[in-house]
Design a binder for these strands. Structure first.
Lengths: 343, 343
DNA sequence: ATTTAGCACTCATAACGACCGAGTGCTAAA
DNA sequence: TTTAGCACTCGGTCGTTATGAGTGCTAAAT
């Protein structure tokens, strides 16, 4: 139902608007060198595109602006991924040159570089810990009634939690317990720790330790909080550079969300593998009304461990940005798999 | 040289401007109920105050606005600290009710509460670690060539660092070394670790361990990074609520600085004890031109360990805010001393 | 000697109208 | 089917004109 020419016009309108942030009119289009037909023809096609909801007019006599539906169609069918240039590829690769073992640093740097390359806000949902396996559990007593529990995973991640000791437990009990746990739980994924603790370990404890229930619940608590992955940001304030965000109210909505982290987490956790593009209201979030979100997952081996996301205005440079996010996610997967997958 | 009436007028102008964010004129002042003289009199006094640089006019025929010098005088001589109301005291006290041992959580919560109470951006410079004493040092090997070093301090703080192992060291060497270090260094303040490592420990190592130099430098590295304290924020986007920050450029400057953390660190580290108020350009920072910064230090025992700061527009509600920061800093000192000072 | 009433003056802000121009839709000719 | 032509729309800009809150200054009142 849409002619090739109409699609071509749609594409050019969107490309143009993405570049200029200005509504585009039929005359200015007709003047472009790769357009051979007149402004009147374009007007007719534009009218049709508007009927179908791909573009809209901010007011009666202005040029056209892509609608969300327009962007959607563009992303799904029109856009051709821009090839990355040498500079971009090099910059991304530079993240992984020094063989740092600390995953968090790699992830943080990825977020920074991605935001630098795009001028949008980059968010990386850190490696999920639940698939990490316990490497070592340690309790360090602090004075009379407090202790810090430390958990080390096979990827070198360290989690710790301080708590008050229940009364009537003494150092030897704790030591015994730590020994038992280390003996039985090393290699167990964090996500299964809780269950194991209550199903297998509890019987052992009953045998060897007084006051096992208090200690156990304490450990369980220490072990539980690792469900939540961490978010890493780059270019948190980049939205301020976008001309369409001249209105403080809009800015506040977005910045607040970024600052709270929770909304962001809901947006990007649990996205499917591969590149995903959510445009404007598709994000089901009031603050994201005028923003788009590009996400891609990254893996270690075959295990999807985290997500890369890029947040910008709906008027995003999709063709370049999608290529970048795609490339980065594959690069990360490669590098991380290399580092951690052999074991 | 300034009459009492002139000072009174200055005070009212500033109070009024802080409340309304609008230039204040002689007529509106004269209508206030606690002012008995005419607008003409006020005009004369205003002219004098302007001569002396305490107030200024945005343009020829507008009301007056406090200058930095005016704010300075106000803060130093005119302001009377506002008594906190029950609600405010309760809110602050609530930070310390549950006896959490984790200092970081207390500090984070303080920043959040302070920003909530004030609608400005709160920053807390976390406890300096250099006075923390080593409680336990631990090395956990990760596979062949990497290991994570974990340092626990007497306040329950845990630092960790992953690194690649030098070649030709084996597990037993590491274990021996860890034992030596734990034996010799527990109770030593982190700030002295480096020195001790190179002066006392090195001789012991030479005796017991092959390849001690590589291992030593590795440890030194792991131990060194704790110089930098951490910053905790509350209400990072609160500056967006200020009417004088309607201009995106101004906002960007401030937000960028907040986001980078480094500039903030420079601003608030090393402030003297007690309440400090830096107004506008006094902060020697382009981004802070239109902002004021209130700082106060908090202590554990007699040891100053960190700083509380509040960042807002120069048109800040000084009287209330100074009381709040003062109260919070004392409350924190009290609570932390209670928790950690007995030892 | 102070204070105040009176008055001319200033200037940001809002309101108004004119006009421009980039844009549109529609019709009729190519 | 495409395009030239034309009337129409409507934001944006520019100058004009109030309006009003503010000022400084002078002279009268206290």
């Amino acid at each position: 139902m849409l002619t090739d020419r109409q699609l071509f016009i749609l594409q050019i309108i969107i490309d143009d608007f993405i570049r200029s942030a200005q509504p585009v009119g039929s005359r200015s289009l007709a003047e472009k060198k790769d357009i051979t037909y007149s402004s009147a023809t374009i007007r007719n096609d534009m009218a049709e595109l508007e009927n179908l909801g791909f573009i809209e007019k901010p007011h009666t006599s202005s040029g056209r602006v892509p609608s969300e539906k327009g962007y959607r169609y563009y992303v799904d069918h029109l856009l051709r991924p821009k090839k990355l240039n040498y500079q971009e590829v090099e910059t991304i690769n530079s993240i992984f040159v020094d063989r740092v073992y600390e995953l968090e640093k790699v992830v943080q740097k990825s977020a920074e570089i991605l935001s630098e390359l795009t001028n949008y806000t980059a968010i990386v949902l850190g490696p999920e810990l639940k698939d990490n396996k316990l490497k070592k559990l340690q309790i360090v007593p602090l004075g009379q009634d407090a202790a810090v529990a430390i958990i080390v995973t096979d990827t070198g991640h360290v989690e710790n939690r301080t708590f008050t000791l229940p009364e009537q437990v003494d150092a030897s009990d704790i030591e015994k317990m730590v020994n038992i746990l280390n003996e039985k739980l090393i290699g167990v994924p964090l996500s299964e720790l809780h269950d194991k603790l209550y199903k297998e370990i509890v019987v052992l404890l009953r045998r060897h330790i007084r006051n096992h229930d208090a200690l156990l619940s304490m450990f369980a608590e220490a072990v539980d909080l690792h469900a939540n992955e961490k978010l890493f940001f780059g270019g948190k304030t980049n939205i301020l550079n976008q001309p369409e965000f001249h209105d403080i109210e809009k800015i506040r909505l977005v910045m607040n969300m970024i600052d709270q982290e929770e909304g962001i987490y809901r947006l990007i956790s649990g996205v499917p593998a591969g590149i995903q593009v959510k445009i404007g209201k598709e994000n089901k979030n009031a603050a994201m009304q005028h923003c788009s979100l590009i996400t891609a997952s990254y893996s270690i081996g075959n295990e999807q461990v985290g997500t890369i996301a890029l947040l910008g205005p709906t008027r995003m440079e999709y063709s370049r940005v999608i290529s970048l996010v795609d490339f980065l996610s594959h690069d990360m997967t490669k590098a991380l798999t290399n580092l951690y997958h052999n074991g």
